[in-house]
Design a protein around this nucleic acid. Structure first.
Lengths: 153, 153
DNA sequence: TTGATATCATTTGCATACGAATGAATTTCC
DNA sequence: GGAAATTCATTCGTATGCAAATGATATCAA
């Protein structure tokens, strides 16, 4: 009996985690859930725009007219994804497209007047979304969390 | 000149953040990027299975046979999403479906022998994925981060 | 018991997300 | 100058992810 125990212990020392793998403790899984929660909070405050669409408008407000590809880089979207997002924003009249004079490959994107109005109107809501997402944490915890999260992203 | 400065300061005190809204500092945006990075690390280690598919297998390993809906609850997927995931795992022979004897609404899901082999084989890789995702942080930072992230999820 | 509710699963529609392939235009470099 | 490599954008295919509607079954309550 004690012989079996010792054998088990030896095995455990070599592979202490072989038996239990707890999905709900893995970063990836919790990261996915935290992201889901944020998207849900976002949707509750801004129903007619998705987070990626909002990101595109907010970044265009920052940098002004840019190429579609460059915008994608700035908001961490690959070319295929950003195209869909911009197409839908264009269909709603929030951005307008034009051809680059010099480099004919580039498709320039810019806010329309309506798009600018929309993003200015939505930013206060976005601040509230950030607040609500972080509400489970204290001010000090928020500072710590944001610092560490930034390291992972 | 100093009059203008004072006016600006007064405005700033009332609405200190009105002018600048930095997308790249918002939780939601960084959360999305951190999640993207994790998925990318996952794909580099486990190319033939997605994180949701892996989650389904890992949870079935934990709890054994369950209904599709219940599995969805356990891995934070809604009914429509979990159906697609299970369909694809079934098509690959990693899970098998059966009808609940008593409650005819329920669709039971379980690992096949092949599915069990697969998940056992993949778990060590998953541990490495977790390690690599958290690699930018020290051991102490990891503990702090996981505690705070769990509060947000 | 039966009528109202609730639960389980499916389907549809829309929106990311990304790999891979393609074509057009530009830049690099010999 | 011109071939090779690079960049920009598009398209296709596959896989989440979720809201809403629907149908089948089960449970609750009058």
């Amino acid at each position: 009996m004690s012989g079996e125990d010792n054998l088990l212990k030896l095995v455990e020392v070599e592979e202490p985690e072989d038996q239990d793998y707890l999905l709900q403790e893995q970063v990836g899984f919790i990261l996915r859930k935290a992201h889901q929660r944020h998207v849900s909070i976002f949707a509750a405050h801004i129903g007619d725009l998705t987070p990626p669409q909002f990101a595109a408008l907010a970044k265009l407000r920052d940098v002004g007219e840019t190429s579609q590809n460059q915008l994608g880089t700035l908001i961490a979207m690959d070319a295929a994804t950003v195209k869909g997002v911009i197409d839908r924003l264009k269909a709603r009249g929030l951005v307008e497209l034009s051809k680059h004079e010099v480099d004919k490959r580039r498709l320039l994107v810019n806010l329309t007047a309506e798009g600018r109005d929309a993003i200015e109107r939505l930013i206060p809501l976005a601040r509230e979304i950030t607040r609500e997402t972080l509400a489970p944490l204290s001010a000090k915890e928020i500072a710590t969390f944001m610092k560490l999260l930034a390291k992972l992203a």
